[in-house]
Amino acid sequence: MASASHRRPRPARKRRTALLATAVVAAVGLVVCLVVALRPGGEPDTVRTAAAPDASSRPSARTTAGEPAPAGKTKPAEGKSSSASPSRTAAPATPSARPSPVATPRSPARPASGTAPLAGRIQPGVTYRGVATHYDAADGDGACSYGPSPDLMVAAMNHTDYETSAACGAYLLVRAANGASVTVRVTNECPLPCAPGQLDLSKEAFAKLAGLSAGRIPVSWSLLSPGTSDTISIRYKTGSSRHWCGVQALGHRNPLARLEIRTGGGWQRLTRTEYNYFLSPDGTGCGGPLRLTDIHGQRLTVDGVTVRPDVVQPTRVQFARVT
C-alpha cells in the first residue's frame, strides 16, 4: 500500500511539465509573430513575389509577322533587305520610329485601288537618292530591247533596281543638287558595280544636270506617270510562232507589272525575261488576246494582235495617268 500511494503524484508532475512546455512554445510563437509583423515590409516574401508583374505578361515591343501594323504606321516590306534597297523612305522598325528624312514620300492621286499593289522595288510616291553617272547611249537602245529611242533622254537602271527588267519603260524625274532636273525613260541596265539608287544617264540627259566633266553627281529621283497621247504597241520577238513566242509591250505610261494570255481556262501569266520579253514556251496563247496590268493594278485587254515577229503593232489603249 505504501508503494502504491507513493507512485500516484507522478502523473500530476508530468501534466504540469507538459502545460509549462506548451506555454513556453506559445510564448515563443507570439514573439516570432511580433518580430515578423514589426519588421520593414512586414508582408511575407512569397506575397511580394506574387504581386510583382510577370515578365511574360509584359507587352512585346515587336510586331508579330502577319499581324496588322498599328494604325497610321507602315509595316516593313516583307522580304526586303535594307542593305540592298535604294535610299528611300524607310519603313519604321518599331511603332515609334519615324521615316528617314532622306526619302520624301508624295501623295499622288491613285486609281480606284488607291495603291500600287504590283510595284516592285521602285514605288510611286517615293523619292530615292543616289548618284548619277553618264554613258554613250548611242541610239538609246539597251537591255530592255526597245530598239532606237525617239529621243536620247534615257537612263540605265542599276542592276538591283532593274529587277529582271521590271524597271523597263519607267519614266523618272531626276533632280540634281543645283536644282536642275530632267525626265528620262529607263531603256537599259547598269550592271554591277552600279549601286542601288544609282542611275547611268545618257550623256544628253546628264548634260541637263551638270557638265560631263563632273562625271558623278548626287541626285534624287522619283517615278512619273507622264502625260502622253501615245498608245501602247505590241511586238512579237524574232522567231515567234504559234508554237513558241515572246511578247513585248512598248510605250506604256506606267511600269508594266504583268502580261497575260488567254487560254481555255482563263488568263495565264507569262514569265518576264531580263531582256524584257514575256515568254510562252509552248505557244499557248500566241496570237490570241493579251491582258496588260500596270503596277497600280489597271488592266487593259488587247485583241487582234497576230504573230508577226519584229513588227511593232499599235493598239488603241493606254493606262490612265496617275498624278
Rank of each mutant, 00 (worst) to 15 (best):
S3L: 15
H6C: 14
P11H: 14
R13E: 15
R13F: 14
A18I: 15
L19D: 15
V28F: 14
V28C: 14
V28M: 09
V31N: 11
C33W: 15
A37Y: 11
G41V: 11
E43R: 15
T46I: 15
A51M: 12
S56C: 10
P59E: 07
P59L: 08
R62Q: 11
T63Y: 11
T64D: 12
T64K: 13
G66I: 04
E67W: 05
A69M: 09
P70V: 00
A71M: 06
A77K: 09
E78W: 02
K80N: 13
S83I: 10
S83Y: 11
P86F: 02
T89E: 08
A90P: 05
A91I: 09
T94C: 10
P95C: 04
S96A: 13
R98Q: 15
S100M: 05
S100K: 06
P101C: 08
V102G: 10
T104C: 10
P105H: 03
P105C: 11
R106S: 15
A109P: 13
R110A: 12
P111D: 07
S113M: 08
P117R: 08
P117K: 09
L118T: 08
L118G: 06
R121T: 14
R121N: 13
R121S: 14
I122H: 02
G125K: 00
R129P: 01
R129Q: 10
G130C: 06
V131Y: 09
H134Q: 08
D136G: 13
A138Q: 10
C144S: 07
C144G: 07
Y146M: 11
P148D: 04
P148H: 02
S149R: 03
S149P: 02
D151W: 05
D151P: 05
M153L: 11
A155F: 03
A156D: 02
M157A: 05
N158I: 05
Y162K: 00
Y162A: 01
A167P: 03
C168I: 03
Y171W: 15
L173Q: 10
A176Q: 04
V182T: 06
T183D: 13
V186F: 02
V186N: 00
E189G: 04
P191A: 03
Q198P: 02
Q198G: 06
L199F: 02
L201R: 00
S202C: 05
L209P: 00
L209V: 08
L209D: 00
G215A: 02
I217N: 01
P218Q: 01
S220M: 02
S222F: 08
S225T: 01
P226R: 02
T228V: 01
I232E: 00
G239E: 04
R242D: 04
R242Y: 05
A249G: 03
A249F: 03
G251K: 01
H252A: 12
H252I: 04
R253W: 02
N254M: 02
A257V: 00
R258H: 12
R258K: 13
L259F: 02
L259S: 04
E260N: 06
R269S: 11
L270M: 09
L270F: 01
T271V: 14
T273I: 10
Y277T: 09
L279W: 07
S280N: 05
D282Y: 04
G283K: 03
C286M: 04
C286G: 00
R291Q: 05
T293E: 06
D294C: 08
D294L: 05
D294H: 06
I295M: 07
T301P: 07
G304I: 09
G304H: 10
V307P: 06
V311H: 08
Q318A: 14
Q318W: 10
F319L: 09
R321L: 11
